[in-house]
Design a binder for these strands. Sequence first.
DNA 1: GCAAAAGTGTTTATGATACACCCATGC
DNA 2: GCATGGGTGTATCATAAACACTTTTGC
Lengths: 249, 249
Amino acid sequence: MYSYHYPHPAVTVDCAVFGLDEARPASSGEDARRDDDRHGTTPGNLTVLLIQRDLEPYAGAWALPGGFVKIDEDLEAAALRELGEETGVRDLYLEQLGAFGAPDRDPRERVITVAYLAIVNLFDHPVAAATDARNAGWFGVDDLPALAFDHERIVAAGLEQLRATVRDEPIVFEFLPQEFTLRQVQSLYEAILGESLDKRNFRKKLHATSLIVPLDEVEMDVAHRAAQLHRFDRERYEALRAEGYRWNA
Amino acid sequence: MYSYHYPHPAVTVDCAVFGLDEARPASSGEDARRDDDRHGTTPGNLTVLLIQRDLEPYAGAWALPGGFVKIDEDLEAAALRELGEETGVRDLYLEQLGAFGAPDRDPRERVITVAYLAIVNLFDHPVAAATDARNAGWFGVDDLPALAFDHERIVAAGLEQLRATVRDEPIVFEFLPQEFTLRQVQSLYEAILGESLDKRNFRKKLHATSLIVPLDEVEMDVAHRAAQLHRFDRERYEALRAEGYRWNA
DNA sequence: GCAAAAGTGTTTATGATACACCCATGC
DNA sequence: GCATGGGTGTATCATAAACACTTTTGC
């Protein structure tokens, strides 16, 4: 038992992990109705990683991965640890979202949680396997089940921060595999911002940054002209940002 | 005594309260050297509200106002309460900055703090009076003493968020009295952004928002032509933001 | 009358938007 | 040969930036 002169809240971390559910390049058919006036975009869907709780409270409900912070553990380390334990996801982009601490957000005791925004690419981390007994899975952000605690609010805050961050930092590339097509980048922006973008203008802006380098390869196994592959020039980006760089896409 | 099966950290709130130390309009002389090539700006100085600690650890050191969160108290309520108790400042703009929780940031025990960014105008809250025995005072952001704990990092994060927020929200008016001159608004932007702005372009943009209404009054007791007073049209702002408004000044 | 800050428009440059056709590939 | 998405440029519009003189007031 651990005793204190004053009551102490418990502190947890929770991770809103976003990924991109890429429409598989090969399967062109499936439910391809309203294709008439689409501006030529195959949208990927933005998804969130959830786990199914097997303990009370909210046993059986879906929730963000997370858990209690150890007493000598850094907050970010705790977030990474819990995420790894519960979903097997490691090596990802992480950014603090903020603290959520409404007095009644957990029925057991006062629990203050520090939420993190995380981004993975589903290519390096294909459909996360839960190393834990619980179920884990990806859900489209527009199609979430009811969530435990105040996790819906945390997801909403995560989405908002994602949208805000995407406007001045090229974090989108955290979603993508090392080699990607410009089409994928555009679909990703469209999925995050929730609006469709002009293909030519988008590519113009992308190229203007000089952060995207074309490779001598093209995508494969597509039923149409293959797209050029590109990679993100991380070194150049680091160099530019060191001297105060603004992205603004 | 309060006992738990697992160790619990303590949770505090800290407030980075920013104010504007207006160069008093009347006193034109005092140390007016390098006035030659100034673009015609009398800069106000951005300041932070600090209290002097009278208890260990860091007794005698300056620190951000803050303290422990009560077990059933909302985080924001705790921030407001501590701020009122320690500095007498109430009724202000408050926004969460984030959680700071390095394991060794407090020598006593594990303490995770939730930091808030706050803005006051020094006209309605003139040089905060500490209702507590401790000392409280305003310090220029470029001229801070050594701070207790990791409060320097919190101030830095606050400044950064202030700069970021000012770009899309007209929160600057939280710094100003109800009636102000355009000159004051510009000085404030200059103080926050740390760069000098073009007078004509700045006023053009201000007027374009239609959020500033001129009054039939001018400032008084100045040794030169008196400036028109204006007020911020809060109703119009609320109406505009309700339908998705972007400020971007 | 002079010092000190208030007030006021136009021109130029830059970035954002709108827009339509040909090309390569797989079937 | 046709369906599917890949790839490309220009003209227009809107916003940002640069820039200097006259006006009012107190002393």
